[in-house]
Write a protein that binds this DNA or RNA. Sequence first.
DNA 1: CTGAAAGCGCTAACAA
DNA 2: TTGTTAGCGCTTTCAG
Lengths: 339, 339
Amino acid sequence: MRTRRSSEKITVSIEDVARESGVSPATVSRVINKFSSVKEKNRKAVLATIKKLKFQPSVFARRLAKGKSDVVALVIPRYEGVFYSFYVLELIRGIGTLCDALKLDLLLKLTSAESALNYTSMGGIIFADIIGNQCQLSNALEQGIPCVVINNYIKEIGVSCISIDNVKGAKEAVNYLAGLGHKRIAHISGDLTTQAARQRLEGYKKGLKINNIDYREDYVVTTDYSRGKARWAAHKLLELKEAPSAIFVASDSMALETMTVARELGKSVPRDISLIGFDDNPSGLYAPVALTTIRQPLVKMAEDSVKELNRLMSSSFAKPAKNLLPCELVIRESCASVR
Amino acid sequence: MRTRRSSEKITVSIEDVARESGVSPATVSRVINKFSSVKEKNRKAVLATIKKLKFQPSVFARRLAKGKSDVVALVIPRYEGVFYSFYVLELIRGIGTLCDALKLDLLLKLTSAESALNYTSMGGIIFADIIGNQCQLSNALEQGIPCVVINNYIKEIGVSCISIDNVKGAKEAVNYLAGLGHKRIAHISGDLTTQAARQRLEGYKKGLKINNIDYREDYVVTTDYSRGKARWAAHKLLELKEAPSAIFVASDSMALETMTVARELGKSVPRDISLIGFDDNPSGLYAPVALTTIRQPLVKMAEDSVKELNRLMSSSFAKPAKNLLPCELVIRESCASVR
DNA sequence: CTGAAAGCGCTAACAA
DNA sequence: TTGTTAGCGCTTTCAG
């Protein structure tokens, strides 16, 4: 006897379709799953009833029976300033669009680094970054769930990584400034708990070395990527007795804040101070002086991450792959050469 | 006999926990679901085994058995320019954070307006906007799924709406300009297939009327919210024989584009042309001249939408509610008074 | 307070 | 080519 909890929501099941079409549930299932073995006549009948009854196969029942899930979880560690970084939005855009195309469900996990995830619903996980949530990553891996990490090149663990060459990008930025004749080049660094910030700092140092410029501790100020901190850092640098003539800033949004501070202090960009950012945030285009920056291929990273995850999800034999994408110097108007 | 498909993924089930703790599956289930009836001793034992075995209850099995889902789907119609509007990101941020807090799963559906959704997985739906996807909305409603619509005040249908008072906001913008002495006030409108754009246009007209300014057709240019179109519209208006002295632009990103065009044409903002936007996009702060704008409480809208959806999902008797939030004039530097 | 047993809606052998 | 049947892992009466 069919007991229905109450008349709350009327769900039409595969059995209803089967009865109505005069076939067995199995045949209906075969039609849904596009088995070629079903006789054309039956297929048509089933398809017709499905439409007539507005039947939609229960996603949960199907996943339970199949023993696997086509859900991609996008885990975004929630830290101060993530959302001002332009980074996340582009990622979501790229990942969301591709998931839709590949008929994968996208589960958005905007969560604190410590919170435990229930992995049973996830067919695979994309980590937008690893910031204090290594634990989530290693647990997932231990559970045998395919994972892709964006923005972090992790050598130690066998996990797929899609990241950009931050060191090279930063080096290039400094190189460019040095090429314009700058000797006093400072750096506003991001949150050093992120690998990207650490690598950009490293690239900055390398860039100096290549150009035989001595590293000065007072020329490096560390922030948490937030605008507030950027403002503070900009003041610190611009009010230095021997102020820098150029600053490489670890993100565009912070570079824009720096530009604002400079103007408030009566300094002209790029005449008095050259500025170069990182991200290619479109806001940089609308700044008083268009911002020179390092562009990272965010949408490509996003798409690659889904493709890679899909590959891992499709075959249990697939081995994780590491991928390092190049970034590109975008010259606009915020840097001048010094005579 | 337990047949396991292959040794692919080892899942530990509620039965394993039961056996290991010397109780029945039902008791384990009761512990998981925090039934107060379980004897303390048993609860402890079960909890211990759960930890020991790293057991996580299968989300799918649970949903199937319970017959309901705690998944919130956020449907974002994918149209040209959605992602440049700042709007979406703020929404995702607010919704994502609150869903996490309420332990609701967030399913992101970045999809074209025509594509059919499988509603069986969704406990409720938030529509980020209704743009050509009325069909998805009415189907969902017909299936009895709780829905909340953001950014659209739909009178005709019994569905919860969270929107802002676009008409009033636009009126206020025009009022402000008129108050500064402007008579030649133009409008760059957004995509008129969106309700927001239509209402802003309406508010613009009302604002003119209140101030006894005649409506001129050549002073209104319609776009699709994209930057390219904004550029075109700006040219069209600024190169008019009798050019306007002020423009109310339907979005900040378009206002910024307009500002750029004005400067390219050698016009100074706000001396030659006053500009006011809509959104309070932070980019406006970094513009050559800080943008005056109308602020909409996006994060509040986002949070309210989740709360409202949660209310609807919690009780099948809950009736949909309509909510109109006010917006606020933010005066910065892009408008000047005319003598 | 606990356990047995019957589903939830679908898939996947196995037979026919 | 199709139907029968036994699960997938959990919840939920209903007894006890």
